[in-house]
């Protein structure tokens, strides 16, 4: 598993993709930081974090689109599966690699924190921690969705489109739930990643929300192993 993680992280940085994504993320978040935080003279980052979380809808599908598709196309899936590792270890290694790149990207926001301190601001620590944890958990869920999508096809573009579509649905699920109401709303709420994020970002460190995100991630990774196993049974 460690070997797979290491290889995939290296692969991200051998290719321009990681740099482009991190650069894109940093550019957009810097624009928000400059106008929404510095110019508005707000000494906190939670506002920024909740504003830029939408960027993940674009970044995560691209981050994960090649993570399993490439192995099928190059035939390296045979190497992984016929090595003495279990399928769940392959999936976990791949997921952690994508999540590592996500964390590097996320770490770029620490610069803003430093700037706030330099400018004499005193952000509230509990809120900040809640915001950061929430952002990472949402990121983990998004990356897991992307990994799952890339197990469904051997075409990178198709994988990106599938995960983008799922993430887009998740983005608009709250308004839909409010609109339909009743039992359906409760079901839809189970997939509402962002409503729980608002709580965390407000500094409410609710353990159920944290468990929710972790299990959401785990379920999608589990589904990914099922997809790979299923294909091994039905294909040659």
């Amino acid at each position: 598993m460690l070997a797979i993680w290491k290889r995939e992280v290296q692969a991200y940085f051998y290719q321009p993709i990681a740099y482009i994504l991190i650069g894109f993320f940093f550019l957009i978040s810097s624009i928000y930081f400059t106008f929404g935080t510095v110019a508005a003279q707000v000494a906190e980052l939670n506002n920024l974090l909740s504003s830029i979380i939408f960027i993940l809808t674009f970044v995560c599908p691209i981050l994960t689109m090649r993570i399993l598709t490439e192995d099928r196309k190059n035939g390296t899936e045979v190497l992984l599966v016929t090595s003495p590792v279990d399928v769940y270890q392959i999936v976990l290694g791949k997921f952690l690699a994508a999540f590592t790149v996500f964390m590097v990207m996320f770490a770029s926001t620490f610069i803003y924190l430093a700037i706030i301190y330099i400018l004499g601001g005193q952000p509230e620590i509990p809120m900040l921690i809640g915001g950061y944890i929430g952002f990472l958990l949402v990121g983990a869920s998004y990356v897991a969705i992307g990994v799952f999508a890339s197990s469904l096809t051997e075409n990178q573009i198709v994988a990106a489109i599938i995960s983008f579509a799922i993430l887009l649905l998740i983005n608009i699920i709250d308004p839909i739930a409010t609109f339909v109401g009743g039992f359906t709303a409760k079901v839809l709420d189970m997939f509402s990643l962002l409503s729980r994020y608002s709580d965390l970002n407000a500094g409410i460190l609710d353990i159920t929300s944290i468990i929710y995100y972790l299990s959401f991630t785990a379920v999608f990774l589990f589904l990914t192993t099922r997809v790979i196993d299923k294909r091994r049974w039905s294909q040659g």
């Binding site: 290491k6 190059n74 992984l80």
Partner: peptide, 24 residues
């Protein structure tokens, strides 16, 4: 196992790839 299509990571050097296989 060497399948019909050799399973290679094209973006790696030969030594890196073999090191990866050894870890795997």
């Amino acid at each position: 196992y060497m399948p019909e299509l050799p399973p290679l990571y094209l973006d790696m050097t030969v030594t890196d790839f073999l090191d990866f296989c050894a870890q795997l």
